[in-house]
Computed example of a mutant assay.
Amino acid sequence: MRIKCPLCGDRDSREFTNKGHETYLDRPSDDAWSPAWDNYLHLRDNPAGVTRDLWYHHAGCTSWLVVERDTTTHDILRVELAADAKRGNA
Score class of each variant (00 low, 15 high):
D38T: 06
P28G: 05
W55H: 03
M1C: 07
N39E: 15
C8N: 07
Y40I: 00
A59Q: 12
H74Q: 06
K4T: 15
E80I: 09
T17I: 13
P47A: 09
D53G: 04
R27A: 12
S63F: 03
G88D: 06
E22N: 08
I3H: 03
G60W: 00
R78I: 01
P6N: 09
W64M: 03
Y40F: 13
K86D: 04
N39F: 10
I3G: 02
I76T: 15
P47C: 08
R11N: 13
G49I: 05
R69M: 10
L54M: 08
R2L: 11
L65G: 00
C8Q: 06
C8E: 06
T23Q: 11
Y40G: 01
E80L: 09
T72I: 07
V79F: 13
D70T: 09
L54D: 01
P47G: 12
R14G: 04
N18C: 13
V50T: 15
D10M: 10
G49T: 07
L54S: 02
L25F: 05
H58R: 10
D45A: 11
V67N: 05
C61V: 01
Y40W: 10
N89C: 11
L81V: 02
D84E: 14
T62W: 10
N89Y: 15
L43P: 00
A32K: 14
N46L: 06
T72A: 14
E68S: 12
P47N: 07
L81D: 03
F16H: 00
G9W: 10
K19E: 08
Y24W: 08
H21L: 15
R87W: 06
D84P: 03
N46P: 00
T73S: 15
A82H: 01
D10K: 12
Y40V: 00
V79H: 11
D12K: 14
V67P: 03
L81Y: 02
T23D: 14
D26R: 04
Y24P: 00
P35I: 05
R27K: 15
L81F: 02
W55Q: 01
D53K: 05
E15R: 08
A48L: 13
K4C: 14
H57R: 02
D31N: 11
S34M: 13
D70L: 07
D75F: 06
T71M: 11
H58D: 09
R52Y: 10
L54G: 02
L43Y: 09
A90H: 12
P6S: 12
A48R: 13
P35H: 08
C61N: 02
D30E: 15
W64I: 00
T71G: 12
P35K: 14
V67E: 05
V79L: 11
T62E: 14
